[in-house]
Nucleic acid binder design. Structure first.
Length: 488
RNA sequence: GCCCCCGUCGUCUAGUGGCCCAGGACGCAGCCCUUUCAAGGCUGAGAUCGCGGGUUCGAAUCCCGCCGGGGGUACCA
């Protein structure tokens, strides 16, 4: 029963908001699966809900996909043999299929008002019955229908679902899933505004576009029986289904804005590398069965296996994402890291030569978990505003009378030292601290504070070299002046 | 309410009847390295495998019941 259909997969986002991290996990899995099978990857825009449309959402999504580092073969900005790829431009197609269903007695027009439907629902709830359409219009006589049409009554089209029996489908991840048909009602397939519902539109398009595998979030499991019934009504073979586990918030509810920023743009702005996010997301619901955690895209394509996707929802773990991000940052060549860091330094870096930025990148590479952290870490390099408490220049058990000459001599040493290079500087300063009767750590910490305003920085002499001789000298001089004028 | 899905360390997971008094990773703690902070290395704490019954010489793994969580129950996707 295995059919050698070429693999064609898709993601079908609806432009009703900003692109969401969960969408990208689904996107990734589809893409990996498609690439692994040498298949075709399609993006289709499901814009049938005219009321929730968000302007610019499609571009935001496509931009985010490109940032994420994946591509698509057919869809917006690409075109393809099954164009158009926006459902709002495919209305005649849906209408044709709806007409076919009505002609075959598989669907019917329903004239029930929203008010009647709401009343019906609340009565059913009061009686503790399962809510659902009572099929009032299903058995209207042709004469009755003609009357309603003549009156110009608004209508929707409903699918005439079977009243008994059961529907079973096979899911790659969950196995066989069976529903009793009687719990399904006659759901709407064409809305009164002439737009199809998701149930009809996605299915017609998946068929028309010859989609072979549908990998989607598991919140769709409960509507899949309806889809299977529709496929049967059309006489079409359904695609292979795989329902992916949900990404959850810390409260085990579906991840949403309530849990903080979930838009893909927020991750970009926070300084996450697309390759790190991909790696993390790949492991969110899938595992290779080995102890490998770090994967290149090619390894992911090679090893990804739908059969090994979990059935359980996974809580989104920011801390682990941070770890991945740090690993990927450290693996970058410093020049490349510098290139990625530049947008996060903003105005302060516009005149900074690439070589200087590369030196900065190398200095902080081990200390970054996200790119955006660079801003705070490097403020002392990009501006001359260095703030600190002068009293902290003096270590415990040392007097300011000792520290003034110590910092003065440090200034002189920096001013005249040649070559201005970290290892030799360190050797010279160790000698100096001995002469001054200070522990190296004491002298170094005092200098560190004086030139950076911070007590935690990269190694002192590497920092000096990047700061530059003149600025180092100036800041040491400023520190001496502050100690001289300050309280003892 | 009804229907469906799910249930292994805090989190992501490995595990498909004996190799598991449960392995890895993140996080956490400690130690080492060290001029601070990181990075790196090592060590450790952390799971009565949701609960209760079975089946079996033997169960996280099979069966039944229960409980818990999630999703659906729209002219939203």
């Amino acid at each position: 029963m295995s059919e050698p259909r070429p693999v064609r997969v898709r993601i079908a986002p609806s432009p009703t908001g900003l692109p969401h991290i969960g969408t990208f996990r689904t996107f990734l899995f589809n893409w990996l699966f498609g690439r692994q099978r040498g298949g075709t990857f399609v993006i289709r825009i499901e814009d049938t809900d005219r009321e929730r449309l968000v302007p610019g959402a499609i571009d935001a999504l496509l931009d985010a996909v490109e940032w994420f580092g994946l591509d698509w073969d057919e869809g917006p900005r690409k075109d393809g043999p099954y164009a158009p790829y926006e459902q709002s431009e495919r209305l005649p197609l849906y209408h044709r299929y709806v007409a076919q269903l009505i002609a075959n007695g598989k669907a019917y027009r329903c004239y029930c008002s929203t008010e009647r439907l709401e009343k019906l629902r609340s009565e059913q709830q009061a009686r503790k019955e399962p809510p659902g359409y009572d099929r009032l219009c299903r058995d209207l006589t042709p004469a009755e229908r003609a009357t309603r049409e003549a009156e110009g009554a608004p209508s929707v089209v409903r699918f005439a679902a079977p009243l008994d029996g059961s529907t079973t489908f096979h899911d790659v991840i969950h196995g066989a899933i069976t529903w009793e048909n009687r719990v399904l009602d006659d759901f709407v397939i064409l809305k009164s505004d002439g737009f199809p519902t998701y149930h009809l539109a996605h299915l017609v398009d998946d068929h028309e576009m010859e989609i072979s595998h549908v990998l989607r979030g598991d919140e769709w499991i409960s509507s899949t029986p309806r889809h299977v019934l529709l496929y049967q009504a059309f006489g079409w073979e359904p695609p292979i289904f795989a329902h992916l586990p949900t990404i959850l918030g810390p409260d085990r509810k579906k991840l949403s804005k309530r849990h903080g920023p979930t838009g893909i743009a927020a991750f970009q702005e926070a300084g996450y590398l697309p390759e790190a996010l991909r790696n993390y997301l790949a492991l969110c619901g899938w595992s290779p069965g080995t102890e490998q955690e770090l994967f290149t895209l090619d390894e992911l394509i090679e090893q990804f296996d739908l059969e090994r996707v979990n059935q359980t929802g996974a809580i989104f773990d920011h801390a682990k994402l941070d770890w991945f991000n740090g690993m990927y940052i450290r693996a970058l060549p410093p020049e490349e890291l510098a290139r990625r860091l530049r947008p996060f330094l903003g105005y302060a870096s516009v005149t900074l030569p690439d070589a200087d930025l590369t030196a900065i990148a190398a200095l902080f590479q081990d200390r970054l978990r996200t790119l955006s952290e660079i801003t705070e870490l490097t403020d002392f390099l990009l501006t001359d505003d260095v703030h600190y408490d002068a009293a902290a220049l003096v270590p415990k058990g040392v007097t300011s009378e000792q520290m003034i000459p110590a910092l003065e001599r440090s200034r002189e040493l920096v001013a005249s030292f040649d070559p201005f290079e970290a290892a030799s500087l360190e050797a010279a300063f160790r000698t100096l601290s001995d002469e001054l009767g200070l522990k190296a750590g004491q002298l170094f910490m005092s200098i560190r504070l004086a030139i950076t305003g911070k007590t935690a920085t990269p190694p002192l002499f590497d920092t000096m070299v990047v700061l530059g001789r003149q600025r180092t000298v100036d800041r040491l001089a400023a520190a001496v002046a502050r100690l001289r004028s300050g309280t003892p």
